[in-house]
Amino acid sequence: MITIRNLTKSFGPNRVLDDLSMVVPEGQTTVVIGRSGCGKSVLLKHIMGILKPDSGEILIDGRDITKLKASELNQERKRFGMLFQGGALFDSLTVGENVGFSLQEHTNLSEGEIKEIVREKLELVGLRDVEDLRPAELSGGMKKRVALARAMAMDPEIVLYDEPTTGVDPIMADIINDLILSLQERLKVTSLIVTHDMQSAYKIADRIAMLYKGQIVEIGSREEIRNTANPIVRQFIAGASQGPINEN
């Protein structure tokens, strides 16, 4: 379980997260929606310990990861997988080396065993025979899927997805949705997913949270969000230009 309490973060004068609190329940899929630039990626990076908050705490199973030493934090990170918005593949390594990176770094598996896991994870995201390509040789959607395979390599207990379906075609988007669903059903993975894609959100979410002006303004089940009375959430899911959200 991830518990976020009173998280605040500013970059210079720009306050991105403002006293944000939320809970991500274990074994469930929580989707965070919100406008571009509202701080969704910043929120995920805090949970990974990549960004440090100005104040507030992030408890993973009761341990505040904002106060851990570097080595303890790295230990904690091994339970996580994160898909970055832009993929963030290592461009000096091949696709196979990217996907097998953490296996190479953190396990004593043999080359052959790593190869086998890499092949399996790539198959999971619908890719075959791409191991020897460089990230620069892939399309945008392929990069995202390779990045997804890399995030899955160590069979993480908690997975953070930053816009998993953006930039892939609708059919592949649905395959990714099914993949997230099956991981949750089979392995009871805890997922936190950032997306703009409402169709995907309705399909995979146990709970949907809306981030607005640095805070979670609404959180609830699919049905609760679909039928919410909150005008901010209503405007966002309807995709209307008129309403309480009016600044660009």
Partner: peptide, 21 residues
């Protein structure tokens, strides 16, 4: 140039997320 490119394309963040210093 190489590390800077890795930094601005979030590859350094990715490295950290994979529990590598």
């Amino acid at each position: 140039a190489q590390l800077g490119t890795m930094k601005v394309t979030e590859q350094i963040d990715a490295l950290q997320s994979l529990a590598v210093n």
